[in-house]
């Protein structure tokens, strides 16, 4: 890949990291606040989600239109369509971890970049979980 492409990819990651911090998703209480349906519910995550999904949907439609006009690189979407036990089971395990830790991959990597010591512990454990999943998924 050309250097310019690498810079664009890095800029995309950079934008995500800045957005996650400014949206406060790096704060465990914001994540836990979203799933605290029967207590002190905090709408911050859903407000962030709405902004992100709306803009991303626009980008998605634009990307589809560009692809129809023959633009490259080709769009690389997941090919799996079936809703199966692995999808829902994996999401359920993810949900338990989400409630326990009040963070997820993006916010944790952003917090790690910002020098939060706990993020190092979480990310190390998460890499272990990904490798374990890799074995099970095979």
């Amino acid at each position: 890949m050309k250097l310019l492409d690498q810079v664009v990819v890095a800029l995309s990651g950079l934008g995500l990291g800045v957005a996650l911090v400014l949206g406060r998703l790096t704060e465990p209480r914001v994540i836990v606040g979203w799933i605290d349906w029967f207590g002190a519910w905090d709408p911050t995550l859903i407000v962030f989600f709405v902004g992100a999904v709306l803009v991303y949907h626009g980008a998605y439609r634009w990307a589809l239109a560009r692809e129809r006009r023959g633009a490259t690189p080709a769009l690389c979407f997941p090919t799996r369509q079936r809703v199966d036990a692995r999808l829902l089971g994996g999401a359920a395990v993810f949900g338990v971890g989400w409630a326990l830790g009040g963070t997820c991959p993006g916010p944790a990597l952003s917090a790690l970049g910002a020098g939060a010591p706990w993020a190092l512990v979480f990310v190390a454990a998460m890499l272990g979980g990904l490798l374990l999943g890799e074995r099970l998924a095979r």
């Binding site: 994996g90 979480f122 979980g129 990904l130």
Partner: peptide
């Protein structure tokens, strides 16, 4: 982090595992 170290490790393991299995 507001939770204990052990809980954070368990959370990380489950998040990684769940994300891999659930794609």
């Amino acid at each position: 982090h507001p939770t204990s170290l052990a809980r954070l490790v368990l959370a990380g393991l489950l998040i990684g595992l769940g994300a891999r299995l659930g794609n």
